[in-house]
Simulated assay, not measured.
Amino acid sequence: MKRCKLLLLISIVLMLAHPAAAYAERQEIKYQAELEYPPYKYIQNGYLTGFDIDLTSMIFEKNEYLVHYSTGNWEQTYRRLTEGGIDTTGLMVVSEERKQDILFSRPVLKSYISVYSRQGLQGEVTLGTLRKYKSVSVKDNMQRPSCRTRRVYRLQNT
Score class of each variant (00 low, 15 high):
Q32H: 10
P38K: 05
E34F: 15
L35S: 08
T49I: 11
D54F: 04
Y42E: 08
L55K: 07
Y42P: 09
E28G: 07
A24T: 11
I53N: 00
L55G: 02
T49W: 02
G46H: 09
Y40D: 12
Y37I: 11
E34H: 15
K41H: 09
S57F: 03
D54H: 06
D52Y: 00
E28S: 14
R26Y: 03
I43T: 04
R26W: 03
Y42A: 03
F51T: 08
P38M: 12
I53L: 03
R26V: 10
L55P: 05
Q44T: 06
S57R: 15
E36N: 14
E36Y: 08
P39F: 01
Y37V: 13
T56C: 08
Y47C: 00
P39G: 02
Q27C: 04
Y42V: 07
L55Q: 06
D54N: 13
K41E: 05
L48N: 05
Y31I: 12
K30L: 15
A24F: 08
Y47L: 02
N45Q: 12
Y40A: 10
G46R: 13
Y31F: 15
F51M: 12
Y31A: 11
Y40H: 12
G50M: 00
T49G: 05
S57D: 09
Q27P: 06
T56A: 04
L55Y: 05
Q32E: 14
Q32P: 07
Y40M: 13
I29G: 00
R26I: 11
N45V: 05
E28L: 10
Q44K: 15
E28N: 10
L35T: 13
L48E: 03
T56G: 01
F51V: 11
E36I: 10
L35P: 09
Y42K: 09
S57M: 11
L35C: 10
